[in-house]
């Protein structure tokens, strides 16, 4: 489980149907916060949201976009597309992490980053997103109807290392599709919840690294509150404060700033000190 109020944690799930999402919603104690245009769920203690996209690529793109805006997701957010799939290569119930996404409609392929797969020993394979439920499974890999659409948008708003496509095998050649109901899907998911948590744990550790990279240096906010800095001055200030922290960890840069100093005088003062 995720600790409460963990700094920097931010997770979004994009799942087609309620049956696929039910165990995730329960496991992470999410509550419904919107019904239209898509049902949206949220945890009250930390920044985790889930959207039910409905079936198909267009719905997946639309729901991912909607959730991105509605939940005010930052760049450093984990995005997971989860759901059931069919395949001729695996057994029903197996959890698969996707390492290549192709589409029956588009030329480009997508490759989720292997950093999410690190040391988790979960099966990996390619996925083909199709527009109609697949029955023949002519190619190796797994078939779904959303992942391509999901990934095409997620890769624009988040680092590749934080995007994951996770699927559970629900049907294989010969499966009677009418027997796959909400309840049977919930059972399949509940059996894999621990492995799903393992994948999330990997993603969270990558998120932590990025969080630290993006974090403003110490005193940055305080100094920006004191004086008006232009955008490019803020870039320089960020750089100087980072260097300051490394060079003079015991010296408080706020003490270098005189009351009447302008933004450029402050930057000059920092620069002069760092030259020595």
């Amino acid at each position: 489980m995720i600790e409460k109020n963990l700094e920097g944690v931010s997770v979004r799930w994009v799942i087609a149907l309620k049956g696929e999402a039910e165990e995730i919603i329960k496991n992470y104690a999410m509550k419904r916060v919107a019904t239209t245009p898509f049902p949206v769920y949220k945890n009250k203690d930390f920044d985790m949201w889930l959207i039910l996209s409905g079936i198909g690529q267009l719905n997946a793109v639309a729901a991912t976009t909607y959730l991105y805006v509605k939940s005010d997701a930052s760049y450093n957010t984990i995005w997971i597309n989860f759901g059931i799939v069919g395949s001729r290569n695996f057994k029903v119930g197996e959890l698969i992490q996707i390492d290549k996404i192709t589409s029956s409609d588009f030329q480009d392929n997508y490759y989720p980053s292997p950093s999410a797969f690190k040391n988790n020993n979960i099966e990996r394979c390619n996925l083909i997103t199709v527009n109609k439920p697949e029955k023949l499974f002519e190619n190796d890999g797994v078939y779904d109807m959303e992942a391509y659409g999901f990934f095409s948008f997620a890769k624009k708003i988040a680092p590749h290392e934080l995007i994951s496509v996770l699927k559970i095998i629900s049907d294989i050649p010969g499966t009677d599709l009418s027997e796959i109901d909400k309840h049977s899907v919930e059972i399949l998911v509940s059996k894999q919840i621990q492995l799903i948590e393992k994948v999330l744990k990997n993603l969270l550790s990558s998120q932590k690294i990025i969080f630290l990279q993006l974090k403003d240096p110490k005193y940055f906010d305080e100094i920006c509150l004191q004086k008006k800095f232009t955008f490019s001055q803020k870039v320089t200030l960020r750089k100087y404060l980072t260097q300051w922290q490394a060079r003079f960890p015991q010296r408080n840069p706020l003490e270098e700033i005189g009351q009447r100093m302008t933004a450029s005088q402050i930057l000059k003062k920092f620069s002069d000190n760092l030259m020595r």
Partner: peptide, 25 residues
């Protein structure tokens, strides 16, 4: 795990990749 690709740029060139995280594996 060996995965076939069309051109290396599909993996190597996209923006929004994190060098430091990739460096771990």
């Amino acid at each position: 795990k060996v995965t076939s690709i069309k051109r290396f740029g599909e993996i190597f060139n996209p923006s929004n990749q994190n060098f430091r995280i990739q460096k771990t594996n």
